[in-house]
Design a protein around this nucleic acid. Structure first.
Lengths: 210, 210
DNA sequence: AAGTGTGAACCTCTTCACAGCA
DNA sequence: TGCTGTGAAGAGGTTCACACTT
């Protein structure tokens, strides 16, 4: 079937961004929005917006733009799990802390429930509102808390080991910020992002501009 | 013409990753590598590797795999500028520091030359080896140092303002880690990355697995 | 036999063009 | 008139299949 489960990856990314914009609108008391407004706020094409919205089910539309509340709720039912999901941050360095701070009290459906590190100065402390455990406690804590997603922000040489521990603990999704390609399939869904690559990409396009 | 300037975006990203792997090989005394080795290290298809290498000029090949040194140099001539490029980090929070630490002494062709913040406690200090200036000095420092790329890691509400300042200072490329879509075209090349979107994407795929 | 180089097919994503509705 | 919804075309990216080389 061609349900919501088969949405294109790019559409999912944009839905997340639509929702952010929509929530902003609600906060400002704006209750409907045109596809071209959403589009220009995100610098994309209005057709793209309409098609994404079409893909999540023809519903949710009106003749004078989209109903902001209804659309953002609709996106919620697609992206969020009903009972929410818990996230663990592995590696409480600058990057780990950045993510923990970012999420502090933001989402209700996606909550950072634990952090892990090997540094005794961090273990058993609460950092950015999140309890930090010893890396050795990973499996126990993840199972007990029902954590499903792990974010890896450790130094490169500890990345593979961290991923392995997460998989052992039954994690279902991993977001890897380390420049090391991990091998966790088919146990977990894996998303990798490398800041150096992004910067080099910008450097390339800066170099080759007319 | 169909030169190296017109390389697909995805190919550029992979070239950056190939180079990392190749430099690792050199460090380990490995001097040639097969496409399937490179591929499996990065979890992609060997054909993809061969095609990317083909795109950067048929050269660089051998009958017993690729010459590691020659290929990584070749990638260097494509990604790097001859005299290198300087980078500025705008916003010395956790994320800004993460990037500054990451790059410390890593690259010679892509160097973080300055950081900017409004916090008096950070201004005029050296953090992760990088001099931190007041945000008000941005235009002056960027022009004087010849900085071409800006990384924005400020809080969301200051993102637009930071981007504007960078553009005013003649910046040519921006990497935006803020969840705010910036409007800097046609002055600068823009790359955006949003951690929340990435996490939500992982959450979606975790939720919808067979 | 085991690699590379590459045309062509395939798949994914984006945009065009336009019908239909208020 | 000005919006949404959508078939169809187009662009971009990946993989297949196979010729070629040593």
């Amino acid at each position: 079937m061609n349900s919501v489960k088969n949405l294109p990856e790019k559409t999912i990314e944009r839905l997340s961004q639509y929702r952010r914009v929509l929530l902003d609108c609600l906060r400002q008391g704006k209750y409907n929005i045109y596809s071209h407004e959403l589009a220009s706020l995100l610098h994309i094409n209005p057709v793209q917006v309409r098609r994404d919205i079409m893909l999540i089910g023809h519903n949710g539309t009106l003749r004078k733009g989209y109903d902001v509340k209804r659309l953002s709720d609709m996106i919620g039912t697609i992206i969020d799990s009903k009972e929410g999901q818990k996230v663990a941050v592995v590696g409480v360095g600058n990057l780990g802390r950045a993510i923990m701070t970012y999420f502090q009290g933001k989402r209700t459906k996606l909550v950072i429930a634990a952090a892990f590190d090997t540094d005794p100065a961090k273990v058993n402390r609460v950092i950015a509102g999140i309890r930090c455990y010893a890396a050795s406690e990973m499996e126990e804590v993840i199972r007990k808390e029902g954590i499903t997603i792990g974010v890896i922000t450790v130094p490169p040489d500890k990345a593979a080991e961290s991923a392995e521990k997460l998989v052992m603990a039954g994690i279902r999704g991993i977001l890897n910020y380390t420049p090391v390609a991990l091998n966790v399939e088919p146990h977990a869904y894996l998303e990798e992002y490398d800041m150096v690559t992004s910067l080099e990409k910008v450097a390339f396009f800066v170099k080759n501009r007319s």
